[in-house]
Simulated assay, not measured.
Amino acid sequence: MQAKPIFDIHPVHGEGPVWCPITQKFYCVDLLKGSYFKVDWKSGNAVEFNVGQELGVMALCDNGKIVVGVRDGFGFYDEATNQLELVPDSPEIEIAERRMNDGAVDPKGRFFAGTMEYDGANATGKLYRLNHDHTWDTLEENIIITNGMGWSPDGRTFYMIDTNRNVMYSYDYDIDIGAIANRKNHITWPDNEYPDGMAIDSEGGFWVAMWEGYKISHFDASGKWIENIPLPVKHVTSCCFGGIDLKTLLVTTSMLNLSKTERGENPLAGRCFSIETNIKGQVEPRFKG
């Protein structure tokens, strides 16, 4: 498998890729800029929207809006009015040192998102769940960098990465009430390898973007390593499945924290890439609320 650069968009810190199989649109965020791109798959034409705050993660809603995890917590962005509406009493609204970083929508249409300190120094990150009625709950604490998350194809297991602990956790998942329990280490990495965002395919396998790693690492459902797919960029940040048959892995990258010399060595930093696989991804649910 080979990674190829796609789309003429240039995020500084690309993250949070999302694929819409209905409109054939690809989305990704430029995190610290507070923007996201909406790209037409066929033409490559892109529109950029700025939500007004650092934007860690976004997802599509049933009602056509965009649900977001931003600096101040949860909100909804309306492309028609270019307005961000925060959820009342949003969980992070008075916490200046922390922001939302990554998230996903569960099979029942609830939105999960987690936080980190801007410098990733301390274990003050939390995992939140936004419910259909726009109330929210805290599900996990003491996380350093809350990152890539998703569910097994049967919806019975939830997975979440803590980048600076070099681990992917698994939890038993009660899909009826959206509760997590019985945390275990599902995949662990050496101290010098940093898992970032990820995608889970229809067979339950993991495709993990490796920050500072120049690669996507592919594991089977049990967590057994299968292969590494090289990318010509140091900071690989996240991925999702898309394309006509949902077998194309769409990858985001970053030029954040690269020195002038490293930028010269990483001319494609920030670009998006496609990788053709022989495994179908899962259709990502939409937020129902």
Rank of each mutant, 00 (worst) to 15 (best):
L55Q: 04
K65Q: 09
K224D: 05
R110D: 05
P230T: 05
G16L: 05
T115D: 12
I22C: 05
N82Y: 06
T157A: 00
I161F: 03
F74C: 03
A121G: 14
P190S: 15
G56Y: 02
E265Q: 15
H132K: 14
G125I: 06
G197Y: 04
T157S: 04
G52M: 01
G120Q: 07
K42C: 09
G103P: 02
V18K: 14
Q2W: 06
E97C: 10
Y173G: 03
G103S: 05
T237N: 08
E15P: 10
A269D: 03
D220W: 02
N192L: 13
N45Q: 14
E276F: 08
T124C: 13
A104Y: 11
V12H: 11
F26A: 04
D162W: 08
N45V: 13
K65Y: 02
V105W: 03
M168E: 11
T237Y: 04
A179C: 13
F158H: 10
Y27G: 01
K288F: 08
V47N: 11
H10T: 12
W41L: 12
M210R: 06
F241Y: 03
N164H: 15
P267L: 02
S202L: 02
E97V: 11
G73P: 00
K260H: 12
Y159W: 07
G264I: 06
R165T: 12
E94M: 09
K288I: 11
M168Q: 14
I95M: 09
G197N: 05
M1V: 12
A104R: 14
K280I: 08
E97T: 15
N131G: 10
G125W: 10
G205W: 00
G120W: 03
I279D: 05
D220I: 09
S274A: 11
G204D: 00
W136N: 10
T124Q: 15
R98C: 12
G44F: 00
A113F: 10
H235T: 11
Q53D: 07
Y214W: 13
D119W: 05
S274P: 11
G150A: 09
H13F: 09
E284R: 15
N45W: 10
K126A: 13
C28Q: 02
I244Y: 10
R71C: 00
C61H: 01
A96C: 08
N45D: 13
P5W: 05
E193C: 13
M210A: 00
S254C: 08
K65H: 07
Y77L: 00
K224S: 06
D201Y: 05
I275F: 01
G148V: 05
V236I: 07
L55P: 05
V12K: 13
T124L: 14
A221P: 02
I275S: 03
K108N: 15
D62A: 09
G264A: 11
V29N: 10
G155D: 05
D201M: 01
C240M: 03
N147M: 11
V67F: 03
K260L: 11
L256M: 12
T157C: 02
K33V: 12
I244P: 08
H235Y: 09
G205A: 07
W211S: 02
P232D: 08
M168W: 15
T135G: 09
V283T: 15
C272E: 07
F7D: 04
E117T: 15
V208N: 06
Y214F: 12
T138Y: 07
T253V: 08
G114K: 03
F49N: 04
N122A: 14
P267N: 07
R98L: 11
D174L: 08
P91E: 03
L32G: 11
W19Y: 07
